[in-house]
Design a protein around this nucleic acid. Sequence first.
DNA 1: CAATATCCGAGGGATTTGCTATGGTATTAA
DNA 2: TTAATACCATAGCAAATCCCTCGGATATTG
Lengths: 150, 150
Amino acid sequence: MKLSTRGEYGLRAMLDLAQHHGEGPVSLRGIAERQDISEHYLEQLVSSLRKAGLVRSVRGSQGGYVLAREPAEISVGDIIRVLEGPIAPMECVNEEEPPECERAQTCITRTIWERVRDSINEVLDSINLEDLCAQARQLKQSSEYYMYYI
Amino acid sequence: MKLSTRGEYGLRAMLDLAQHHGEGPVSLRGIAERQDISEHYLEQLVSSLRKAGLVRSVRGSQGGYVLAREPAEISVGDIIRVLEGPIAPMECVNEEEPPECERAQTCITRTIWERVRDSINEVLDSINLEDLCAQARQLKQSSEYYMYYI
DNA sequence: CAATATCCGAGGGATTTGCTATGGTATTAA
DNA sequence: TTAATACCATAGCAAATCCCTCGGATATTG
C-alpha cells in the first residue's frame, strides 16, 4: 500500500513549478537540484506529465517547463493518477481497466476496496497546487518569525 | 498503491471463519478449498493472524481455527494492518516506525499522505466481519429470490 | 498407532522498482 | 555559431518484494 517515488518526486516537481509559476520556464536541472532528484529520472516523470497535459515545455536555451494551467486548477489527484496510474487498492476496482473477475457478482470484499479507492481519490482531489504553495508560504513565514526572536 | 494478496486472501479467510463462527474449529484445508487459495500460503497468513491475536488455533485431528473475538469485534482494518503492515501511502507517515527524514519539518507534501492514511484507516475500521457476513446473507437471499422467479 | 491437523523455517522464481547509461535529435537564445 | 535546453528510445541492472513451495516437526483424536 505504498506510493512509488514516481508519485512522490513528480508531485514535488509540480510543486516546484507552481512556486515558480509566472516566472517563465523552469529547467529540469533546476528542479532536480532543488528537489534532490536524479535529473534523468525526473525527465521520465515530467515527460509523462507533459503527455498528460499538466505541463507545457519550452524548448531551446533558457527553455524548461511551465504549468499548463493555474496552480489552483491542478489537483494532487491529477498528478498522482498520471504518475502512478489509476488509484485502486485492488486491481478489481480499477476504474480505467476493470479486469474480468468471475467472483465479481458475488464478491463481498469488493465494496470495501471501492470505498477505499473513493476515499483516497477524494482526499487527493481536495488539494491543489495553490493550496500547497500557500502552505509553503506560511511555513516559510513562521520559520522567519521564529528566527527573528532567537 | 496496491494491496498484496496477503491482505486479500487473509480477509477472505477471516470472512470464511466468521461465516462458520460458533461451529467449532475450521480447518485450513476447508478455507483453502472454498476460497481457492494455496493451503501452504494461507498457513503463513493465518499464522500472522494468530500471533496478532485475531484467531485461536486448535491443534490435532479435527482441529483448525476459530475467531478469537466476535465477528462484530473484528474490523477489516485490524486484519489488513496485521497482514500488510501499518497503512501508510509513504514511509514517512508510518505510525509505527516513523523513519527519520531531514525534510520532516519543512515537508509540504507530507500532510497529504497523512490525510490519505487517515482516510484509508477510517474506511477500513468502519467495517467489521459481522457487517460482511450480513452482506453475504443478503446477497445469497437476493440470488435465491432471483432463482425462484426464473 | 494412524490419521489429521497445526506449526515452523528455508528457499526460490518471477516481477517490480528505481534508477543509470548510452547516444543521440531538435530547437532556441544570445 | 555555440551553448543550453528539451525530447526520445532502448537497454541494463541490482535490490527489493511478491507469491508462493518444500520438507519436515509437533500435537491431538479416535
